[in-house]
Design a protein around this nucleic acid. Structure first.
Lengths: 116, 116
DNA sequence: CCCATCTATCGACACCTGTCAATATCGACT
DNA sequence: AGTCGATATTGACAGGTGTCGATAGATGGG
């Protein structure tokens, strides 16, 4: 993955550049596009929704493999992309890696798309 | 482009499947991912923002080539993707093709991302 | 009728991306 | 230490995607 997202994309940079107010600069467009790319995959959307619907909005990799029906490396790969993009946080407890939704991350992206 | 978006994606199908309420089915995830893919490109984001910021929220292809700095076929290509995805409408007047934002299209996507 | 202009399509190419098998790494428990 | 289970990384490969040049359609003007 050459252009991996910076963690600050969602939490800082992208949060202040509305889409339909004025023409986006090339840099702003790149940032927002990177954020959207993390959401532009069916597996990653399912992972997000499954994590969100889990107990305490938290799930380990082992819980996610069977629901999406893909290999463990592939699931880990997607989780890394979502984490790097700022949508998930990873906390390791014992051998397990638990992933949680970053509060407000999706909401910030949402607000960029609406005119407001 | 093998998996081109149906125009109904944004206006009908995707509009009722919140992301963080319950696990998305494979079909719902595919639909939403297709919609997000249309927004996951910097050039397309810039095109949307330029159209939105134009007079009467309307612009022809010739107005868009210079701002994004890409070839005319490439711009036409991106406009087609945005149109097929339901974010733009195309109306031809004379030799020119004018593109306009579809009202509410971005808002519907926005509402899918927020917890509501 | 022919030409100039705007737009769309086609063919080709480099690059990115999602996927898996194999392997490495890390942590807990004997 | 040694082993086992969970996760991450690597390498490889097929398929998708953005881009351009060339070309084809369409539309209005001389």
């Amino acid at each position: 993955m050459t252009t991996m997202l910076d963690v600050t994309d969602v939490t800082a940079g992208v949060c202040c550049t509305p889409l339909v107010r004025e023409p986006l600069s090339a840099e702003e467009a790149d940032q927002l596009a990177n954020t959207m790319k993390a959401l532009a995959d069916p597996t990653r959307l399912r992972l997000l929704s499954i994590v969100a619907a889990s107990e305490d909005s938290e799930a380990c990799v082992c819980d996610l493999i069977e629901p999406v029906g893909l290999s463990q490396p592939t699931v880990s790969h997607h989780l890394k992309i979502l984490t790097t993009a700022g949508f998930l946080t990873r906390s390791k407890r014992g051998t397990w890696a638990y992933f949680t939704l970053v509060p407000g991350a999706l909401d910030r992206v949402s607000q960029l798309l609406v005119g407001s």
